[in-house]
């Protein structure tokens, strides 16, 4: 899968916090950072420190952090700049821009922490505990399972395309083969969904999802 997906279940000090609390904590950091006005910049700084501490405890490497920020920051800088640049006479716009940058960065880092400490099964359990409709949770679980399979299938289709295009294609050809690739992926996936539906029926599926209890899914 993509290199920025933490597939392996992390083990570290952050595991001491229950899964529900991890999600709640992240949301709390994001809300607080959106509510603190710029004048209280020390509070923003404090939040940044907390989030950084969390990231290092979760074992996020600096290289990974830098890679993600390299993709994230330029867009944010441009978007933030667009407001004061259109109204140079307004002093407040610059302050607004800085607080936007701060808020977005803190939220982004908090999100990064979350994806490192919340394994997917834990997320499903949390959603069930928060009374998320079981049907939606079942769909989410199902989707998560097949993302990996479709990803592999896409890689195979890409390889087949490269083999035929000899590496380079014209702009138009790229579009057509890409669209074919998605079309083929869609067809195969929907056919697979029909077979999977039969496999579910064969094991007594009646349309209403049932889940293992929370103690059971936690594992050994």
């Amino acid at each position: 899968m993509a290199d920025n997906s933490p597939v392996v279940t992390p083990i570290g000090p952050c595991d001491a916090i229950p899964g529900t609390a991890r999600l709640a904590l992240t949301l709390l950091v994001i809300v607080v950072s959106s509510l603190i006005p710029l004048e209280h910049w020390p509070a923003h700084g404090l939040l940044l420190v907390v989030v950084f501490a969390g990231l290092s405890l979760a074992g996020v490497t600096l290289g990974y952090l830098a890679r993600r920020l390299m993709l994230f920051l330029p867009m944010l800088l441009v978007f933030g700049l667009s407001v004061p640049i259109t109204q140079l006479h307004r002093e407040s716009a610059w302050g607004w821009m800085v607080s936007l940058w701060l808020r977005c960065t803190i939220s982004f880092l908090a999100g990064l922490w979350l994806i490192h400490v919340l394994p997917f099964p834990e997320l499903l359990a949390t959603l069930l505990r928060w009374r998320c409709p079981p049907l939606l949770v079942a769909m989410l679980a199902f989707m998560y399972r097949y993302i990996f399979i479709l990803w592999d299938e896409l890689a195979r289709l890409r390889q087949a395309r490269e083999a035929r295009n000899f590496g380079s294609g014209s702009w138009k050809r790229d579009w057509v083969t890409n669209a074919q690739m998605i079309g083929l992926l869609l067809l195969r996936a929907m056919e697979r969904a029909e077979r999977t539906h039969q496999a579910m029926l064969a094991r007594g599926w009646d349309g209403s999802p049932k889940f293992l209890g929370t103690e059971a899914r936690k594992g050994e």
Partner: peptide, 9 residues
């Protein structure tokens, strides 16, 4: 046939 996120489920 394997449509759940973990083997146990």
């Amino acid at each position: 046939q394997l449509f759940c996120p973990t083997v146990r489920e």
